[in-house]
Each structure stands twice: as structure tokens, then as C-alpha cells.
Nucleic acid binder design. Structure first.
Lengths: 139, 139
DNA sequence: ACAATGTGGTTTGTATACAAACAAAAAACG
DNA sequence: CGTTTTTTGTTTGTATACAAACCACATTGT
């Protein structure tokens, strides 16, 4: 009776999530050169919510403080975003979409939606919304 | 008529996959200290398939050559795995589970299965298998 | 006002991830 | 047999990801 459960890696939720995410990132990179999926997520939140502090932006995009710092640094370097120290709270770094950042976001939004579609392409419309609904509950 | 599709980051498949995966990795790390989820996946494949070349192991775990190299290096450093140059094919590096690697894998398999369960905890049994089936088709 | 606590941001160290370029060796091919 | 192609592995450079330690500043409670 030695706990002989045959561990099936291929059916483990973590392994599946990783593989599907890999496929998605690959489709994204091929479809939208210039920014990564993470960088695009940051641009999307800034377009949606307006100016945010760096850490707030991190929270809104599910990146921790160290990670969002790197993403913002690279977006600043590309001129897609502006980071300005706040005059009220001198710890805060306020991040805003630049004109070219907004332009790029608006120009690529449709393509980004197509990336999601291509990732979900093997599923029917009903299956897609089922999957999204299930994943939302695992957040 | 300016392409006004309101890009909903929270419902994009890529963002959802990333967030659920984050949650899963966090549960894994808290439940199984000592090895990461990736390292555990490599151990699982070696336990399942026996000796493999480093690149083969990478393919079996969906990691590219550069990534699997790092994972194997760290497993070797921890003594969980042995890497020996092949005498037949002098390019090949044959990777095998060490005794302590096998012991650790067998001792943690049950916990690893519980990690998957905890990740899926918000879903019913039927929903879980539905989700897994859907993700399998997106591989 | 002051001390305790919390928050914003940075830095360092470790671990994936992958593109790209490379060297060595094996396999395929005419 | 010799050339071409593939395969295996390494290295470098860039981009997440997160823990942990740290500093500066803000907020809270007394």
C-alpha cells in the first residue's frame, strides 16, 4: 500500500496553465512586436485608469513592486510612459501614458484582442466563455 | 466609429492565465519548500521516464534548452539529480534521478497533488475536469 | 509632538523564460 | 567519402517574477 498515485504531470493544473500561457505569450510576441504582454497590460491599465503611482499600477496589473519597477523603467526608456515624482507625497512616483504610449495602445488594441482570440481559437464561443468564467473564479 | 472596443484586461485569457498561475506557484512554494514547481516537474518526468538527455528532459517539461540547463544545474547542485556525459554520443548529457532525488519526489508527490487540489479548490469536481479538459485543448 | 506603524520605492539575489549566436559532434545525403 | 544538415549543449542578453532588506516619507494613535 505504498501511496502509488501515478503523478500525471500533463494533467496538473499548474503545468497546463504554464503551457497555455507559453503559447499565448508566443502568439502575442509574434503579433505585437515592440512591447511585451506585460508592458501592454500596464499601458492598458494606464489608458483605463489614468495616472497611477508605480506601485498602484503594479497592483492593478498583478505585478509586485520589484517587477513593476522594471516594466515601468523599460516603458519610460521607450518613451511610452512618463514617470514624475509627486509633489504632495514625496515618496510617490506618478506614472502616466505619454502621447506615443496612448497612440501605440490605441493602434494595437484590436490586434491584442485578436491575440486572445487566436489563443482561444481551438474552443467554441461557448467553451471560451466557460473557460474565462472558470479561470476568473481561480483568481 | 473610432474602434471603441473597451479592452477589458481582466477578461483577457493571457492575464487570467498569468494570475491563476501566480496563485498556483504561491501555493506550491508554500507547500513544498526546497524545490520549485519547475524543478519538481523535472523530477516527475525523470521518475516517470527514467534517464533522459538534458534537452529531451526540457522537451518533456516544456522548457527550452537554455531554461532546462539552469534547472538541471540547480538540481545537480542540490544533489537531486545526476548529469553524466554519454559515452556513445559525446554531445549528450544524460540526466538521472539520484537516490535522494527519488526519495524527495516520492515523499512529496502526495503533497504536490494536494497543491493542484488547493489551486482548484474554488471549483466543483465537475468544473475542475471541465477546466482541465479545456486547457488541454489549448496546448 | 512623538513614537509606532504603514506605505512607496529601490536594490540585491535567485529562478524562470526565450531569442540568438556559437561549437562540437552526429546523421543524412549524394 | 566528404559535404550538408541536424542535433546537443553552452553562453549572452533581455524580460519577467518574487523574497528580503532597506530608506524615506506619511499616517496613526496616544
Amino acid at each position: 500500500m505504498t501511496g502509488n498515485s501515478p503523478y500525471r504531470l500533463d494533467e496538473q493544473i499548474g503545468y497546463l496553465l504554464r503551457r497555455v500561457n507559453q503559447r499565448h505569450l508566443s502568439i502575442f510576441a509574434a503579433s505585437i512586436p515592440g512591447v511585451t504582454a506585460m508592458q501592454f497590460a500596464a499601458l492598458a491599465r494606464l489608458a483605463e485608469l489614468g495616472a497611477l503611482s508605480q506601485n498602484q499600477l503594479g497592483r492593478e496589473t498583478s505585478m509586485d513592486a520589484a517587477t513593476i519597477k522594471g516594466v515601468v523603467d523599460r516603458l519610460v526608456r521607450q518613451g511610452l510612459v512618463v514617470a514624475v515624482p509627486d509633489s504632495e507625497d514625496r515618496r510617490r512616483l506618478t506614472v502616466t501614458l505619454s502621447d506615443s504610449g496612448r497612440t501605440l495602445f490605441e493602434a494595437t488594441t484590436a490586434t491584442a484582442l485578436k491575440v486572445s482570440e487566436r489563443t482561444l481559437a481551438p474552443l467554441s464561443a461557448r467553451e471560451r466563455s466557460r473557460l474565462v468564467a472558470l479561470l476568473l473564479r481561480l483568481t
